[in-house]
Design a protein around this nucleic acid. Structure first.
Length: 224
DNA sequence: CAGTGGATGCTCT
DNA sequence: GAGCATCCACTGT
């Protein structure tokens, strides 16, 4: 990575990161994060599943307005919002929209690519498929806790690498799958969960896409 | 393989 | 005191 002379280094907390403008609506950011590599202290992988939450969204922690817990979600875009789930798990979100607007993207699953050994140690598991398949598992594998709440995502220990950046220079993946969000009781029909098509590292499969007329009925999903 | 329920702690009413 | 943006172990087919 070379720092070219003409481009000034961005201050921590900039809204544009890995080619994504985090000031955009969370639904758009959630789509664009699919395929981006997320590292925490060098450990992580490719994001394969996200969910969007917005200020006017009854399922969002910010729906009722600012509180001490959700404060960072009302802060600057491109920062982390970390919350405790079910008293056990830590879950990581990326804050979206300008400060004052409570929106964010929950990172639900990664395809592990970096630091597999550290993830296995933290999770007490061998199966790569289960290391980061779900927001709580991902938080544990990456060593996320309350101390990460509010941190800028463009500074250590975080690192976000867009699909076009880095060695491989792969193109952004095809349009992600979309479906209803998981584990919520309000606004359950909003299709704001996104996933990388064909990935084996999703927390749960997406409903099969509409089958073309006359297609041969396949085997009954041994997925899960 | 599907369904159920326990663990566990914090936030908000 | 309820309700979680969850995970896992355990049950029964």
């Amino acid at each position: 990575m070379s720092r070219s002379a003409g481009v000034p280094a961005r201050p921590p907390g900039a809204a544009v990161l890995a080619g994504i403008d985090f000031a955009l609506p969370s639904e758009q950011v959630a789509r664009r994060l699919i395929g981006v590599t997320l590292l925490v202290d060098g450990v992580g992988g490719r994001i394969v599943e996200t969910e969007a939450y917005d200020h006017d969204d009854p399922a969002s922690h910010t729906f009722g307005g600012p509180t001490p817990r959700n404060a960072s979600m009302f802060g600057e875009p491109g920062h982390a919002y970390v919350y405790r789930s079910y008293g056990i798990h830590w879950c990581l979100n990326c804050v979206c929209r300008p400060a004052g607007h409570g929106a964010g993207v929950l990172i639900r699953a990664l395809e592990p690519t970096h630091g597999l050994d550290r993830m296995r140690a933290r999770r007490g598991l061998d199966d790569a498929r289960l290391l980061c398949a779900g927001p709580g598992r991902l938080g544990q594998a990456l060593g996320i806790d309350r101390g990460f709440d509010g941190l800028a995502l463009d500074a250590p220990p975080f690192r976000l690498v867009g699909p076009g950046e880095g060695a491989g220079a792969q193109d952004a993946p095809a349009e992600p799958l979309a479906g209803p969000r998981i584990g919520i009781s309000k606004a359950v029909d909003l299709p704001w969960r996104f996933g990388l098509a064909g990935s084996r590292f999703l927390s749960r499969p997406f409903r099969a896409p509409p089958v073309a007329a006359g297609a041969v009925p396949g085997r009954k999903a041994s997925a899960r």
